[in-house]
């Protein structure tokens, strides 16, 4: 099984390309979830490699919660233009109309409505039978047991007890009408692999990953960036300019920055190697309660 001639990055790359091609070949209407972050950047890069010289045989889907960092949206639109991609942007309009924000309804409910429900809504609307996600098994405990082809019922839910056994690289792509799979081509990548690959392949990423002076406030041990005027400031709270960067990207009110002076890719990777905290710590949603990721996955979150 092992060929020592291939470095582990080459092996991971080849494995991901194989997964991506298999989905394109087996499903009639796949879509690639594009979250704009570093994992999405790598996944997109791999997909372009997989089908070269053909264009991507499926569209990208971005679930826009309306609370993404502005630089993310700019980067998204530039990427789409640069690579000539087909992008679908979907927002839960009912949620937007109801004025659901991370501040008014809490991070849990907000994530449920504007991310999970929005995603399910988009998948149903376009009738996608397969959706690529950039999740990795090393991210979180319940992810470690996730399949590469993860089966979802017609209402998009995930049942950890009835997952199909997955052997070799023989993926079972059969679904009944209305059912779908989530495909995870980066399953076996670690955070370090992602950064090493971005470095080796020179993949463009959102500038927020690089250290820069940014206006931040400190709340509950987290550094929040004041990305626009919608962030309600508490009494006596004034944004400070700090040299910070982000290890993961999401909705700006839910994503903590880290103080850092790593302003280039090699510096980021170096910092990452000496880091002693895991990347999802910067995300509020995992901390709500033990097993919270598993709950969200059952409900249809990536």
């Amino acid at each position: 099984m092992t060929t020592d001639r291939q470095s582990h990055l080459k092996r991971l790359e080849a494995e991901s390309i194989r997964i991506i091609r298999e989905v394109a070949a087996e499903f009639s209407n796949p879509v690639m979830l594009y979250s704009i972050g570093k994992d999405s950047a790598v996944m997109l890069h791999l997909a372009i490699k997989a089908f070269y010289p053909s264009k991507l045989p499926f569209p990208l889907l971005h679930v826009d919660t309306t609370w993404k960092f502005r630089e993310m949206i700019t980067f998204r639109d530039e990427t789409v233009k640069r690579l000539g991609l087909d992008l679908i942007v979907h927002t839960n309009e009912a949620g937007r109309a109801a004025g659901i924000t991370p501040f008014s309804h809490g991070s849990n409910y907000y994530t449920h409505v504007m991310k999970t429900e929005a995603l399910k809504e988009a998948l149903t609307k376009y009738g996608f039978d397969a959706a690529f996600g950039g999740a990795r098994r090393d991210e979180e405990k319940s992810r470690a047991k996730e399949r590469v082809f993860s089966f979802r019922t017609a209402n998009h839910s995930w049942d950890p007890k009835s997952q199909r056994p997955e052997l070799w690289q023989l993926y079972n792509a059969r679904v009944a009408k209305g059912e779908s799979i989530r495909a995870f081509p980066l399953s076996n990548w670690t955070e370090l692999d992602i950064w090493q690959y971005i470095l080796a392949e020179n993949i463009p990423i959102v500038p927020l990953y690089f250290a820069k002076e940014r206006p931040v406030v400190e709340r509950g041990g987290m550094l929040l960036m004041v990305d626009d005027e919608r962030l309600p400031l508490n009494d006596g709270e004034t944004p400070d300019m700090k040299l910070v960067r982000f290890r993961t990207l999401g909705c700006y009110p839910l994503t903590g920055a880290v103080e850092s002076d790593a302003a280039t890719l090699p510096e980021i990777v170096r910092e990452m190697l000496i880091a002693r905290t895991s990347e999802r710590q910067g995300r509020l949603i995992d901390h709500d309660e033990a097993g919270s990721m598993e709950k969200k996955k059952r409900e249809g979150y990536f």
Partner: peptide, 10 residues
């Protein structure tokens, strides 16, 4: 406990 991912298992 690092390994047992799913709630039911825990």
């Amino acid at each position: 406990l690092l390994l047992d991912g799913l709630e039911a298992e825990r």
